[in-house]
Design a protein around this nucleic acid. Sequence first.
DNA 1: GCCAACGTTGGC
DNA 2: GCCAACGTTGGC
Length: 160
Amino acid sequence: MPALINGIIMAYWLFKSEPETFSIDHLKACPKSTDSWNGVRNYQARNMLRDQIKVGDEGFFYHSNCKVPGIVGTVKIVRAGWPDPTQFDPDSEYYDPKSSTENPRWFVVDVKFNQKFSSIIPLQQLKMLPGLSQMPLLRTGNRLSITPVTKEQWQIILNL
DNA sequence: GCCAACGTTGGC
DNA sequence: GCCAACGTTGGC
């Protein structure tokens, strides 16, 4: 059974980021420890940002493409999908000339720092847990920067 | 709509 | 830096 907040179903997610670009410490240092999750340019992930991720949902913060990849903490969603401002900014590396304000192509959600674990939960450790074998993150070739997490998977990881 | 070529992700 | 796996592009 999904958890409820004010009668609304809440869900769990995993957000991947390269720590050299944007780490959990960067997020914590933002004003109100909150930032927009911008720069996602993949349609599957876009659909989750636009349609599925809701205020009150929670997410893991995952560091990828670094010495020890793994989950480093959690965030909370404080604003649901809205158009990614970087797509309209010609100076941004995420600028998309084919997008328009009338018909935006890319979306963000705003996430707020929640907690940083005392130590990282390495990918290597996650892979050894039988209860997590179905996590999209752990499936071969999955490169989505945002993936859903079940309540069961969420609990297993938080209890480590 | 097919599919080859190319680009990107990300663990190792 | 290598390379597997996947997404995107564009000719036809």
